[in-house]
Design a protein around this nucleic acid. Structure first.
Lengths: 115, 115
DNA sequence: GCCCCTAGTGTCAAAAAGGATACCGTTATG
DNA sequence: CATAACGGTATCCTTTTTGACACTAGGGGC
């Protein structure tokens, strides 16, 4: 993603601007996983096979910067960091669910075709 | 996007797989614009300021390859090429509308904050 | 003492995405 | 004859994204 020269992301319509916040393959998946509740870093990692530690960290930081998730650090050893959706992030639920529904419906038939 | 080593995109859940089809900043916007009906190449170009000819072509080809849009070429001079949603593409409407709704709702308040 | 755990960070390099620009054929228009 | 319109391609180059890998702190277990 171009991620837009920061600041002004208002190239066009609201759809376009919305995409600037949730682009990247992992972000939507992360948000989706968090719909069910708070998760720790390594829990997310296990839930999303294929994401590397660095990528996960990056995406989480961006999501946090965009105010979609909340990061809670507990001063413990070993460290404990919990991620959860912010109100803003939770407001994405309809989008995420629509996407999941579409995936469930349209990708199974695709795979059936491909198989 | 990584666009996955082609072929097997089934890393994880359906959400993740769905994203492989609609990644890229422009694709969702293109699909969204096409919701309202058939559009010609240059019409799309005008509707999506910021997209270059090359990018638009690329994205349209991928959308076509994924069966989300239909490309109709009319043997005329000057050339006439029309793009429209396939049934599969149209099935994304709930997702697109949810995204637009979210953008309208959550980005206006964001910008108000930023302003 | 040594290794493991968590939740990272840093660096390097590869891969991918994206942008700029030039060019194509054909017909109409000036 | 030159130019413009349409819907692209081809090429080059830069920026972004991504991955691999090593490394960190501080306590607990063996």
């Amino acid at each position: 993603m171009p991620r837009v020269p920061k600041q002004q992301a208002s190239t066009g319509c609201s759809v376009e601007r919305a995409l600037n916040l949730i682009d990247g393959k992992w972000k939507i998946v992360i948000l989706y996983k968090l719909l069910r509740g708070t998760l720790r870093f390594n829990e997310l990692r296990r839930l999303i096979p294929g994401v590397t530690q660095r990528m996960l960290t990056h995406q989480l930081r961006e999501l946090e910067a965009d105010g979609l998730i909340v990061r809670m650090v507990y001063a413990q050893v070993p460290p404990r960091v919990e991620y959860s959706l912010s109100a803003r992030g939770r407001s994405l639920e309809p989008v995420l669910m629509a996407l999941k529904h579409w995936g469930d419906t349209n990708l199974s038939s695709l795979e059936a075709k491909a198989a």
